[in-house]
Design a binder for these strands. Structure first.
Lengths: 242, 242
DNA sequence: GCGAATTTAATGTCAGACAATTAAAGTTCT
DNA sequence: AGAACTTTAATTGTCTGACATTAAATTCGC
């Protein structure tokens, strides 16, 4: 692993890139210990703070973990699904909020992705997933629920649907899309009548899932998307007129 | 913004989290300048190297950018789609390689997601997208192409299909799934006959896209998935027997 | 043998310095 | 007055050396 001390880029960025490449290409494997900071500093011909900055960059991406003490050091970290979820959610959330992505675009993407796992979920969902969906529907019907709590329950409902597909890669990809929508969804206020309609659509979806009817779930999602879009349009229109 | 100096977590991690929260919650907005390292050090009551480690963590996630010079400093960075793509691709790639995700699972997820944007792409794809798809199909038919080049062209083909949906959020989500599959795909060797079959399926998809036939694209993708899965199974079986 | 104290090797943090970079202010020449 | 050049100031990038903290390994006492 070599770096170019004359490059305009920061040394710590170069070092981080070099180590990252080694991990991605498999030259450093999971749980393998990296040389100590002092050794790395010598290898790359830089000072220890510079090495440390590089290691912090990698730690921020969950590529390494560090441990103190005699046998401590930096170890290549096994990137877990939960870690990846978290990263994806913050990235997606910021991406949407910083790039003025319209509600329409985000919503379209979210439901398109969700429909992608509808057939699989209808086929494979466990009783547990179904129970979660039913429970969230029930929660959504309770009076006195804040808009935020309603949205959170909505996310949990869809999360159960997605997880029902039994494909962790799908769940991981969808987590970002669904969760990142939440700030946008929270901008909407739901009247009691709005909620009733959404709950009815949720019930259709749960029923289709119970019947292992993939097409039914897909259609239910399409109907829910249409409802959500028109609801959002109405809200934004009213807000613009004010 | 406050941190707890008695917490077991690293100070630099706490500081990074505090600043990250401020960005996510909108208390720091895009292009806003953060206080200088020296000022941050004073605010948080830590030394400058500690602050720097925190800032490097944020820089690694593209949340801030730094500039040297008199009016320099750290600025809240607008997370661009290309930046997000890159992060997603490395994360997805590592996730698959480090968690022993089976080819089958990854492949299923990839095609499910891709089918999600098939109808949209059939409806909206520009002549440009179609031309790219045709060009990649042509490249795939050329003799002497290495397996890696064939796979790269495959990715480009699917990329054009996905981008055809005209939804940047979808493109972003799919980039990870498609690109992360490449290392897995590269494990497969394609005979001339295999390639011919895949090219024929690609042509079906391109034709359906040209005819704005969403169902046709969907079916084409399903057929391609089946072909890919059986091909992979054969390869892995042969390899296991060896 | 076994438990407690010690050693040791690592990361975490600090302080202070200098180098490099860049924009703005100031200065000089025309 | 204005343009080109120089200086200055602010800021990040890097280095050196030190000390604190942690946790495993080792040694010592019994």
């Amino acid at each position: 692993m070599k770096i170019d001390p004359k490059s305009p880029a920061d040394l710590s960025a170069q070092i981080a890139a070099a180590i990252r490449d080694a991990i991605v290409e498999g030259r450093l494997i999971v749980d393998q210990r990296l040389p100590s900071e002092a050794e790395l500093a010598e290898q790359f011909n830089v000072s220890r703070p510079t090495v440390r900055e590089a290691l912090k960059r990698l730690a921020a991406q969950s590529l390494i973990r560090t441990q103190r003490g005699a046998t401590g050091g930096a170890f290549v970290n096994r990137l877990s699904f939960p870690d990846a979820y978290d990263q994806q959610i913050t990235t997606s959330t910021l991406l949407l909020s910083m790039n003025a992505v319209s509600f329409e675009t985000a919503c379209e993407a979210r439901y398109a992705l969700e429909r992608a796992c509808a057939p699989l979920s209808a086929m494979r969902r466990s009783a547990d997933h179904l129970a979660t969906m039913r429970a969230e529907i029930h929660r959504q019907g309770q009076p006195g629920l804040t808009d935020e709590a309603f949205c959170a329950s909505d996310v949990a409902f869809h999360r159960a649907l997605v997880d029902g597909a039994g494909n962790p890669v799908l769940s991981y990809q969808l987590a970002g899309a669904v969760e990142a929508m939440q700030p946008l969804m929270n901008m909407i206020t739901f009247t009691a009548r709005d909620r009733a309609r959404i709950i009815a659509l949720h019930e259709n979806i749960a029923n289709a899932a119970e019947a292992c009817d993939g097409d039914g779930v897909t259609q239910g999602l399409t109907a829910l998307e249409a409802e959500t879009q028109s609801l959002a349009q109405a809200v934004f229109k009213a807000r613009a007129a004010r």
